[in-house]
Design a protein around this nucleic acid. Structure first.
Lengths: 124, 124
DNA sequence: CACATATTTGGAATAAATCTAAATGCGGCA
DNA sequence: TGCCGCATTTAGATTTATTCCAAATATGTG
C-alpha cells in the first residue's frame, strides 16, 4: 500500500512485487502475498484496479478522483484531471444498482505520439 | 463476425469459440483462428474489446454507439443507451492524441441486484 | 510458555491468450 | 487440368497472469 501511495505510475502486480523485493532490505513479500494484499485493498476500496485489454491489470491508490488515459501503443495508464460525468437516465438503468462510473480515454500518450510522428513525417 | 453481429451478449473469446463449434455443422474454427480473427476485427475497428478486471476479455460488434455497464458480481457486460460525454480540457490532455473515450458504469446487474436483495432482506 | 488463530510462503495449478511450424486451401496461369 | 506460390488455418506447446493450496511462520492471549 505504501508503495502504491508513493508511486503514481499505475504498476502491474508483477511490477509491485519486484519493486518490493528489489533492494536487499529485509521486508520482502512473496508473490502470493502481493496478490492477496492487492485483492484485499481493492475489495476495501482503497485501491483501484484497471484492466487493460491484452495486458496485465494495473493498480493505483485512490487518491483524488481522476479519469484514466490508456495508451493504445504502450498500454501505459495515466491520470487525467477529474470532471463530473453525466449519469445515464433512470429508464436505461432499469433495476441495476449503480455504484460508480469511470471514464476512460484512449489514444497515444505523449511519448508514443512523438515516436509515431518521427516515423511518419508526412501525414496519414 | 456473423456470430458477434447476431449475439449481443458480449461473449468471451472462449464462448465464441465454443459456440462456433457447438452443433455438428461443418464450418468449425480452431481456437487460434478465433483469436486471430478477433484480433484483426478489433484492429479493423469492427469489434470492440472490453477488458473486465479478473475476467476474460469480452467482445461486441460495434453497432450503435453505446456505453457499458459491468456487473461487479457476475462480470457480465450490458449495453446502456449512448449519450455524449464531455472531453477533457486541452490543457490536461497535453501532447496526447485522443482517439476515443469510453464510459463504463459499474454496480450490480438486475439479476444480481435481486439475488442480493433476497439474501439481505433488511438493509446494510 | 502453550495454545489458537491469522498471515505468509513457495510451488503447483489454472486460465487466457499467443506462438509456431506443419498442414491445408485457394487463385492464377501455362 | 495440374502445378506453384501465397495466405489462412490448425493443433498443440508455450507464455503470461493469476489463483490455489497445504505447510510454515508469525502473532496474540492469558
Amino acid at each position: 500500500m505504501a508503495f502504491l501511495a508513493e508511486h503514481h505510475s499505475h504498476p502491474t502486480a508483477a511490477e509491485i512485487f519486484h519493486a518490493l523485493n528489489r533492494n536487499g532490505g529485509a521486508p520482502r513479500s512473496s508473490r502470493a502475498t502481493t496478490y492477496n494484499n492487492l485483492r484485499d485493498l481493492v475489495q476495501a476500496g482503497l485501491v483501484r484496479e484497471v484492466a487493460v485489454e491484452g495486458r496485465a491489470a494495473r493498480f493505483d491508490a485512490r487518491g483524488m478522483r481522476h479519469h484514466h488515459f490508456i495508451c493504445d501503443r504502450c498500454g501505459n495508464v495515466e491520470d487525467l484531471q477529474w470532471f463530473s460525468v453525466p449519469r445515464p437516465g433512470l429508464k436505461s438503468l432499469g433495476n441495476r444498482v449503480l455504484r460508480e462510473c469511470e471514464l476512460i480515454f484512449r489514444g497515444l500518450c505523449s511519448r508514443c505520439a512523438s515516436q509515431r510522428a518521427r516515423r511518419q513525417p508526412g501525414k496519414k
